[in-house]
């Protein structure tokens, strides 16, 4: 964020960066929430195949943890029934928290990444099933057009997560995994790494800027995650992440040691 702010020349945008950086510092110093919307709890869990664990127990503990973060700590419960709109004041409920499981061959670590995902950015997410005939052009255009349409709503500058391939559900998960990567990291595949740079340049040329009020930095990074897809399909999904890009990681080792990270 600091590096990005140094690139900015637009006076309004510079002012916004100052507030963002002051906010981060203040939240850190006084243990305050960085943003009031603590969102829906999402966990990306990677279980090493050599880590002996009962995954059902982990799932139950994560749900309890999300609840306690809300009841005992100042998380704001943002979960609600989709029809009655009744908020249980626990951040969880039917189908929540969102849990994604992966299994890592040969690893002896349990890696839990938590993302509290606010609505301003999540509401700007989009998914589309393109056809092979549409080609890669359609995918690139979809990314640029979606970011332009989102404008100021997702609290830019954050991270644009892109999923390419898979099915309707997998592509959305890939986009979510994309926003969870360290900001500015690249896909391991050189083709997609190049596409990330291309799209980053394209999006920042739009001039939407911090908070959509104009400027050079519209997004800090574009991250792509991809998978093979069906011969008749070419799905794409975009998951938008806002500037606080909050996440917290716990790596648990067989001897009980816990490493906290980001």
């Amino acid at each position: 964020m600091k590096k990005a702010s140094e690139r900015e020349t637009n006076p309004t945008a510079k002012e916004i960066f100052k507030t963002i950086l002051a906010n981060v510092e203040l939240a850190d110093k006084e243990s305050m929430l960085i943003c009031q919307d603590t969102g829906l709890p999402i966990y990306l869990v990677k279980v090493g195949t050599k880590f002996q664990v009962d995954c059902a127990k982990i799932a139950a503990a994560l749900k309890e943890g999300a609840k306690r973060a809300t009841v005992e700590h100042p998380f704001r419960s943002s979960s609600t029934h989709p029809i009655t709109r009744v908020n249980p004041q626990t951040s969880v409920g039917e189908g929540l928290p969102i849990l994604y499981w992966d299994f890592i061959e040969g690893s002896d670590v349990l890696d839990i990444l938590m993302i509290p995902k606010g609505s301003g950015s999540e509401n700007m997410s989009a998914m589309k099933m393109f056809t092979p005939a549409d080609g890669v052009k359609a995918l690139k255009k979809f990314v640029v057009d979606t970011v332009l349409q989102s404008g100021s709503n997702p609290c830019p500058p954050g991270v644009i997560g892109v999923g390419i391939g898979g099915t309707a559900d997998l592509v959305s998960k890939l986009a979510k995994e994309a926003i969870a990567r360290p900001v500015g990291s690249h896909n391991h595949d050189p083709y997609f790494a190049k596409m990330e740079d291309e799209l980053l340049e394209a999006i920042n040329s739009l001039g939407i800027g911090p908070m959509g009020l104009g400027g050079a930095v519209t997004t800090l990074a574009v991250h792509i995650e991809w998978a093979y897809t069906h011969i008749t399909q070419n799905p794409i999904a975009i998951n938008t992440q806002c500037w606080p890009a909050r996440r917290a990681r716990a790596k648990i080792y067989p001897d009980g040691k816990v490493e906290h990270g980001y």
Partner: peptide, 13 residues
């Protein structure tokens, strides 16, 4: 008047 969205710590203070 546009505020910096997400900067709730500053706002609260």
């Amino acid at each position: 008047l546009a505020i910096v969205g997400g900067a709730a710590a500053v706002e609260t203070k």
